[in-house]
Amino acid sequence: CSFLFHFYSSIIFLLIMHYAKEILSCIVLTFIFYLYVSSMTAIIYRKVRCSYLSLGQSLMPGGHVNNFLISVFCRKLFDDCHPSVSKKHYFFSYIGENILKYHNKDQFKLIQNTFKGASLAKKIDACELLFFPICHCKHWFLFVVDLQNCQFVFMDSLFLKKSRYQVVVSEMLVGNFKHLWKEIVDSEYSFDNFRIVYPAMPRQGNG
């Protein structure tokens, strides 16, 4: 038995060595093809792109929604009902994330340019709702500034209002947003009557 084991093991080893170059070439070609296809554009909507890799990672079971896919949705919502009619603005996720982590001049310039650009469609201080999808610590939530009803709305399917996550996030977001609004949009605007709201919503079970 020992002899047969070594005999067959030797044959298998020789076969592997013989075909190693072909196997390696196949693996390399497969990997190159994967990289090529992954980087290809799966969705392009009004100059907003989402690759096959981003789309696959967003929709696969247990996957994580990619910011590029969120950007496509934001652009689609913009086109479905123009801000001049809807009185709503949907901002790409990196804007809300920069408001959350705001601390330098580059971020200020980015947010300033974004607010000014959005105002070309509809002045943001004349809107009723401003939507900021945000991914923080690999978790998505929605920050909504309800100018009509004087509310800062946090829509989070995982973390509750009193969770450590939302306590930190809400304090940073609201504080930074107020500061940036006064610096960029309206220095006389008062947020004194605004309240923070966490509406009831379905809970996710994979936290």
Rank of each mutant, 00 (worst) to 15 (best):
S2T: 13
F3N: 09
F5N: 14
H6A: 12
Y8M: 12
Y8R: 15
S9H: 08
S9M: 10
S10R: 08
S10D: 13
S10H: 12
I11F: 10
I12D: 12
I12Q: 06
F13R: 06
F13W: 10
H18A: 12
Y19Q: 03
I23F: 05
S25C: 14
C26F: 13
C26S: 13
L29G: 00
L29W: 06
L29F: 06
F31Y: 09
I32E: 01
L35P: 00
L35S: 06
Y36I: 12
S38A: 13
S39I: 13
T41G: 08
A42S: 08
A42T: 04
Y45D: 04
Y45P: 03
R46G: 12
C50M: 13
Y52V: 08
Y52G: 02
L55W: 03
L55T: 03
Q57V: 15
N66S: 15
F68H: 14
L69N: 06
L69M: 05
S71R: 14
F73Y: 15
R75L: 10
R75P: 09
K76E: 15
D79T: 15
D80E: 15
D80T: 13
V85L: 14
V85N: 11
V85A: 11
G96T: 07
E97T: 08
N98G: 07
Y102G: 01
Y102E: 00
H103C: 04
N104P: 09
D106C: 04
D106A: 00
F108E: 04
Q112C: 07
N113L: 11
T114K: 00
K116P: 05
K116F: 01
G117C: 08
S119K: 00
L120Q: 05
L120V: 11
K122Q: 07
I124Q: 00
A126M: 07
L129M: 10
F131A: 08
I134A: 02
C135A: 09
C135K: 09
C137M: 13
C137E: 11
K138T: 11
H139A: 08
W140Y: 02
L142N: 14
F143R: 05
V144A: 09
V144R: 03
D146V: 09
Q148E: 11
Q148C: 11
Q148M: 11
F152T: 05
F152V: 11
F154M: 14
D156W: 01
S157L: 09
L158C: 13
K161H: 08
K162V: 13
S163Y: 11
V167M: 12
S170C: 12
S170Q: 10
M172W: 11
F177E: 01
W181E: 02
K182L: 05
V185K: 02
S187D: 05
F191A: 00
F191V: 04
Y198R: 03
A200E: 03
A200T: 07
Q204C: 08
N206C: 07
N206V: 14
